[in-house]
Design a binder for these strands. Structure first.
Lengths: 218, 218
DNA sequence: TCAATTCTTGACCATGTGGTCAGCTTTGGC
DNA sequence: GCCAAAGCTGACCACATGGTCAAGAATTGA
């Protein structure tokens, strides 16, 4: 069995692929909206257009489904976190950082909210990731930021707070979308809005940290 | 009955006051952690040290309890949102804004997370507040910011995005506390940490918007 | 064609849910 | 001391939950 289907865990049959995709998409929405406990397999199954038993057939359990969603999101996250070095241009790096984080909120709002919900609940499934991989990533970036500050390329601000500032202000447009829409009176945020916000954030953060930006911005 | 206890809705007896306080505190924690659906009256009752029936005796229903918590949080919020005018000093107003928002994250982390959870879930109970009161508050502030920009007291940045920037970056330290602690390796954020972050945010935001701050900051 | 595998799903189960209620005890003003 | 109001709570209800399972349907490769 394992031999005949040795690649099943990587791609699986066409049917499996299609159904798992539908389940994952539906589950991401429902978990994001109601949290781990508040989400029900019944609702996920309905949104995926399948009977509940079928969801369990593919995913095994609610917990496994949830963990798989988190892992997919962390993989997206990791794909975004490319490496930098002290030789790079601070303005370019920070701009790219803000822009890619903003695109993550744009392209995967449900995933962003799922992540937020997990953290809000005390990160029971992500403790390890936060204290391990992500922490090291932050500290390596922080070291580079400090070197830039030493060279006078930017103000000597605390790099960790700076990273949190960028994360929070970009994540906001996914997590607090309901608030943003309610207050601005919009029905949805368009690409042009996101572009405008990206420029605003880039401008304020770069200027706020004493970095000169690479190209003139409004 | 109504006559004998005419003040009951405002303060109630000593017993009622004590028990309601315990229930509200426990409920705020549980709702914040698990969301509206994910929270259970059983768990709330246990954390309040009362039988479940007693919680329902005081609060009527899960929904009423939740709404009451949200209203309390909105009242705190409103108490913080004092008025400003175009004659005020931009640096002072923005500094105070950041500081008070930060203190809200500090003093009422569970309330902040409850609010975040509600918004994350699409703000089913707060639509009205967002599209009404809060929206007007934002727009009145925005008008003042614009006038400051016209007078050259700050850069002509979009005031609404600026308000969201301040909200998100301060709210972050309540909502994403688990992430902040995991990454920084701390057990908890102390008053000194919060003071440092407040100064960092004030510095970056004021400088980023071209406002001169009222007092020298590290 | 045919058998092995994968897929599908309704019935079912133990447990937990929000909520009701009746009957009890305690409290507080007179 | 009295008694009405307030407080208390275990038993109970209908329903939803995550999960199991067996039996059949569809698909697949040789």
């Amino acid at each position: 069995m394992a031999k005949a289907m040795q690649y099943s865990e990587q791609e699986g049959g066409a049917i499996r692929q299609r159904n798992e995709k539908a389940i994952m998409a539906a589950a991401e929405r429902v978990f994001a909206r109601h949290g781990y406990r508040g989400a029900s397999l019944q609702e996920i199954a309905e949104q995926a257009g399948l009977p509940k038993s079928n969801v369990l057939y593919y995913m095994g359990s609610k917990r496994k489904l949830y963990v798989r969603l988190l892992e997919r999101m962390m993989a997206r996250w990791n794909a975004m976190l490319d490496d930098i070095s002290a030789e790079d241009d601070p303005a370019e790096v920070l701009s790219a950082f803000i822009r890619s984080k903003m695109q993550m909120s744009r392209r995967h709002p449900e995933g962003s909210r799922l992540f937020a919900s997990e953290i809000l609940g005390g990160a029971p499934f992500l403790q390890e990731y936060l204290r391990g991989e992500l922490r090291e990533w932050v500290q390596s970036r922080a070291a580079v930021f400090r070197e830039w500050a030493d060279r006078g390329l930017m103000d000597p601000v605390d790099p960790v707070w700076l990273i949190f500032l960028i994360w929070s202000s970009t994540q906001h447009y996914a997590d607090f979308e309901a608030q943003v829409l309610g207050i601005t009176g919009r029905e949805a945020l368009g690409d042009d809005d996101l572009e405008e916000i990206t420029r605003f954030l880039t401008r304020v953060v770069l200027k706020g940290c004493g970095v000169r930006h690479p190209e003139p911005v409004t």
